[in-house]
Computed example of a mutant assay.
Amino acid sequence: MKISYDPTVDALYIRFIEGPAECEVIRLNDRVAVNIGPGEQVVGIEVLDASEMLEGLKEHKIRLENLVAVS
């Protein structure tokens, strides 16, 4: 899993599956979209205006628990 944030467009993307995948996009609302790939697997979740939806994002106050970082 990879989580990336682009502050220039205030967008957060959580990618669950590595590599390219052709996806169907399901919009949950104006700000959140889920990308569904082959076998109906969730490939990723996109959050627009992320700093408005996720309190503390711009201040780097997001905490990930029980995850091992892989570089």
Rank of each mutant, 00 (worst) to 15 (best):
K2R: 14
I3S: 11
I3V: 15
I3G: 03
S4N: 12
S4P: 01
S4A: 08
P7W: 05
P7F: 13
V9R: 13
V9G: 09
V9W: 06
D10Y: 07
D10S: 13
D10L: 08
D10M: 10
D10W: 05
L12N: 03
L12D: 02
L12T: 04
Y13N: 02
I14S: 02
I14K: 04
R15L: 08
F16N: 09
F16R: 09
G19T: 05
G19I: 02
G19D: 07
A21R: 07
E22A: 14
C23V: 15
C23A: 06
E24M: 12
E24I: 14
V25G: 01
V25S: 10
V25F: 05
I26S: 07
R27E: 11
R27C: 01
L28P: 01
N29C: 05
D30R: 15
D30C: 04
D30A: 14
V32W: 04
A33M: 10
V34R: 05
N35Q: 12
N35V: 00
N35S: 12
G37F: 05
G37L: 07
G37N: 08
P38T: 10
G39S: 08
V42N: 09
V42C: 11
V42T: 14
V43N: 01
V43Y: 11
V43I: 15
G44V: 01
G44K: 02
G44A: 05
E46T: 10
V47G: 02
L48W: 04
L48E: 13
L48G: 04
D49M: 00
D49C: 02
A50H: 00
A50R: 01
S51H: 11
E52P: 02
M53C: 07
L54Q: 06
E55M: 05
E55N: 12
E55F: 03
E55Y: 06
L57H: 01
K58E: 13
K58F: 00
H60E: 11
K61C: 01
K61H: 13
I62H: 03
I62A: 03
I62K: 07
R63N: 07
R63T: 11
R63E: 10
L64Y: 14
L64W: 12
E65V: 11
E65M: 11
N66A: 12
N66M: 05
N66Y: 10
L67D: 03
L67M: 12
V68S: 13
V68A: 14
V68R: 14
A69E: 09
A69D: 05
V70N: 09
V70T: 13
V70E: 12
V70D: 08
S71W: 06
S71L: 09
S71K: 13
S71G: 12
